[in-house]
Nucleic acid binder design. Structure first.
Lengths: 211, 211, 211, 211
DNA sequence: TATGAATGAGCCTTCATTCAT
DNA sequence: AATGAATGAAGGCTCATTCAT
């Protein structure tokens, strides 16, 4: 008869613990984005989260730890916006799929400026571990693009270009798009996004030369 | 007869002063590149330069100041590797000029990894002033590219794309190239550079689609 | 008929409370001995005792309080191993009594290393109150010895030495013995103890000079 | 011609540096003695030394480091007050030599209460390294005493006792003497010291029994 | 001009204790 | 009585900058 009480308490506790963690994470994110990693102090985070100094350390090991976690969350959100190209028979045409991916990616970027800021401005050169994560993420992305390119070549859709170089060029156009979004932090209307996403895709598909 | 002597002396003094500054700058650059801005301490710089602590502050106002100056130098080197597209009558064809610029740019990047590291990894989010400089540089570059694109369109060489988007896409491919160079800091043979430079140019000109 | 029940309940409660206290004390002792006062944290104690943080403070006012209590227990155990020298007519000879005391003391020390560690290594310079307790205990011991010495002199058994100095010298030999035991925390066989106890007694009785 | 100037400067600097170190050490010693290691904060030391926080760290790596150095100094002072027993032919009689050593030791102890406090009250259980130093010192001392005892036995001056036990008993009487001095920190007149030193020596030589 | 000793604001982290449940 | 999340004071150490020589 005691068990349920204990369970209840600990369940509540566990849930609250999760909430608290979540709340601190959410409070910390904009602080990091606004001030940068080095100019963000634990004081800023706990003030934003409305908690005491010690409380912070109940949930996170260190400043680096909470930052790494935020970065992971961001990377996962980005990953989720990319889905593998479907190569099945009835799959939509490759071009449409790529368009979808680019559009989704750019949408994610635009609708989550905090995340983007992390990826392009904050998380570089801070820490071995953090650097490694970013590097891995980008490598992952480039591999994904390269494989899509090779598949496209095999299918005869794409011309015979250097997949490696092609992949990082595409990667570059996407990252630059992210930069632009972060840099001019005005609201971007949906139509604009669509227009730009299309233009970026168009650029990548056909280049700048008059055919 | 004294005046000239004095002049001479002060000229020599001024020149020595300039040399000293230069020497400190050159000593500091690799330190910043290797350790990153925050992990570079004044101690590291003065040790590398072989000067005393106080001496450093005779030549530079602060750590941020010497960094900003190094950044400026880097940006100028980059600028020097880009020359305006010649629109005169006897000018070489636009395509050749663009190719030349890209090739020069990538060469500069490769032959000066320190500089590149600065631009892509170090100088971001450190300081309002520094950020502004970088932002201005990239804006400048994008403007330059956009104008070249518009010129190309007017001349009928380029197709009718969104110059704005086209410009930042090209910018993105170049920056990504820089990243790759920095990331894999192995020696890159000249032929490889040329090959990749060509591939990047090709990508930008023709995209990935089979025509 | 209710009253007794209530009494019974509260008696049981009181008894449980006492048990809990006892359990915490016993759990804390080895922790303090192993880690030292400052390296022992409340976390260590409650983990060892299997109780919650708050529970600890239901039974003890503070870390210093539980430590002081442990020290008191240790001191009492030590005191119990010393009994007054019997000066009655049919009492065993003084020498035998002293021998007994020393032997008992050393035995206590050896069989209770935790206790000993407390007395010689931990409980020094921590706290005014704790220091005072130790000081009082040792003063008590010295007084006891001094009085025994004076009695011995009166009885003509002992030579005419400075009782004060003699007392603290004996005290010193005992404490050093304790140190040795603590320092080399290997198991010491009973015979060894006896041999060393005898040697210590012999030293104190006859000194080192060839008579 | 520059060399002397530089030398002069650096010599002065080095000398001042030494003085500063010395000054900080001397300022820190009583602070440690009065407050104990854990209750001594860097703030206390720099206040006592009249220096800034950072200055402290120019001369010492950490709080533990300055403490260890003070301990070393104390141990060396103690060592210096002990000289090997001279076993040459014309050497003064062994007994006189021992008496000299004991007297010197006790004198050192009395005239340097700070030092003694370190040895008996402060430097225990603080730190692996510090503990090791103390342990080594006492082991050294015991070895010294034991060898002297064995020599004495060989020479027929001392009776056939257990040298090991004898050594630590003597050690114990000395340490206890130190304790007493520290505990009652009143001024002790020279005659008293001599009287007590004699009494301690007498105790160790002849024990308490009427021969 | 050059030196390098001195400065001190600032920051992360720990941990004994409290208190709402 | 028991729990454990929350608290916040406190402290050791760093490092860019200053300044007397």
């Amino acid at each position: 008869m005691k068990e349920p009480a204990i369970d209840g308490r600990s369940k509540r506790a566990r849930s609250q613990r999760k909430n608290r963690r979540q709340a601190i994470l959410e409070a910390a994110r904009p602080v990091f984005v606004d001030n940068g990693y080095h100019q963000t102090h634990i004081s800023d985070i706990i003030e934003a989260a409305g908690i005491a100094r010690g409380t912070f350390y109940l949930y996170f090991d260190s400043k680096a730890a909470i930052f790494a976690e935020l970065l992971d969350l961001s990377l996962d959100e980005m990953r989720a916006s990319i889905v593998g190209v479907d190569q099945g028979e009835d799959a939509p045409p490759m071009e449409a799929q790529l368009m979808g991916t680019v559009r989704r990616l750019l949408s994610t970027v635009v609708s989550n400026r905090l995340l983007t800021t992390f990826l392009v401005r904050e998380a570089v050169g801070l820490d071995e571990e953090i650097d490694a994560k970013l590097k891995a993420f980008y490598a992952e992305l480039i591999t994904y693009i390269r494989e899509a390119l090779e598949e496209g070549k095999k299918m005869g859709i794409l011309r015979d270009l250097d997949s490696e170089v092609g992949a990082f060029c595409i990667m570059g156009t996407i990252k630059q798009f992210m930069e632009q979004v972060v840099m001019y932090d005005r609201e971007v209307p949906k139509e604009d996004i669509d227009r730009v996403a299309l233009a970026v895709l168009d650029f990548n598909l056909r280049g700048i030369l008059r055919s």
